[in-house]
Design a protein around this nucleic acid. Structure first.
Lengths: 125, 125
DNA sequence: ACACTGATTAGACAAATATCTAAGCAGCCA
DNA sequence: TGGCTGCTTAGATATTTGTCTAATCAGTGT
């Protein structure tokens, strides 16, 4: 299905990143480099149905609603999630292309995998 | 210290991260969520021979030596690179297992999809 | 219109951080 | 020994950031 992989950069261990690519990627990484946002992203991304209501997220944290809202905004601004209001509630979903982009950045060099087929199996050990 | 945990977590879109896993991963991500450190990491990781002398890194940046040293320390503390002094110079190398760990975090879920599995259905259960 | 709930925005503040200068440490070489 | 170079540590500072409270916006239902 050739997942939509925004092409940006080679894996980090293949060639040096340009200054601008590094800046762009660092901005995305900064968005996920927070425990709360990481959990939010995984909650949203792993949720059956592909969408999560904010109301289902806040309960899992010991934080106020504005704080959760702030973190969601950071993720959204970074292009990692999308959102839409439907009636009373606001729903969030993950944007796979953006997440894939990060995955490719740290992809191992043992296998120069073309987009779509990532066969990381060294987890087995 | 930086416990070198080779394997840690399922991809971010497979299941919600635990609080402690999120904290551990966020610490690693924070280390790479900086343009300078990203470039340093890619310079080190992509260098032929697997090692780079600090003296070869500083020239590429418009920063003072102590600042570069600081960033290298952050990467080293996060377990992403190793270092050793040999004579006059200090060499750095990448630690692939740590980088792979990040790659797996953002790995796409294309593979473990048995027929009729939960894909992206917009049905509100 | 009004009240109520869900979510975001605005503003404030403490904590973390990226950068610098100055100082210290480790090897080389004359 | 002394001086020189490469790198790190220490301390200071301005900026960024995570969190809160208070206020505001958006929808629903009397």
């Amino acid at each position: 299905m050739t997942a939509v992989t925004i092409q940006c950069c080679a894996p980090i261990a293949r060639e040096p990143l340009s200054e601008s690519d590094a800046a762009e990627l660092a901005a995305m990484l900064k968005a996920v480099a927070d425990p709360v946002r990481l959990r939010l992203l995984s909650m949203i991304g792993s949720h059956a149905g592909g969408e999560v209501c904010v109301c289902d997220l806040t309960a899992s944290f010991d934080l106020t609603a504005p704080t959760i809202s702030h973190h969601l905004k950071v993720l959204r601004t970074a292009g990692l999630i999308g959102s839409e209001r439907r009636g009373t509630w606001v729903y969030y979903w993950i944007i796979p292309a953006a997440v894939n982009k990060l995955g490719e950045l740290f992809a191992p060099l043992t296998k120069p995998a073309p987009p779509g087929s990532v066969d990381v199996d060294l987890v087995n050990a």
